[in-house]
Design a protein around this nucleic acid. Sequence first.
DNA 1: GCTGAGCGG
Length: 134
Amino acid sequence: MAMRAAATSTAASFVAPRGLRALYSSLTSGFPFNPPQTQTEKPPPAEPSTNLFVSGLSKRTTTEGLRDAFAKFGEVVHAKVVTDRVSGFSKGYGFVRYATLEEAAAGIKGMDGQFLDGWVILQSMRDQDLLLHL
DNA sequence: GCTGAGCGG
């Protein structure tokens, strides 16, 4: 009879029916549609980056040309004209990464709207908003 | 490698 006693004691734990559990949680947390997102702190929704998206490039502009043009405003850590992997031709945009945010901001201010290989190059609004006011 | 908005590796 010791075995019977053990069996009954382990089976003693009981779970409430799903319907009751759902009702309980809706009573304790307000409603099934949990609204309470009490997050009053949201200072950096999008973090500024030293990496700039550069569009409007001439399809003849190369990674070197891009780096040269942007190097006047700071230390260019990484520059790349995006090319199609199969054809190898420029897609007309690229990326420039500076060492610091200050240089990145200077790079935007210095290069936005400037000509490079006959094309007016433009920075993304995202990057400008994030960098030009810091 | 023309094309002309877009966010690669």
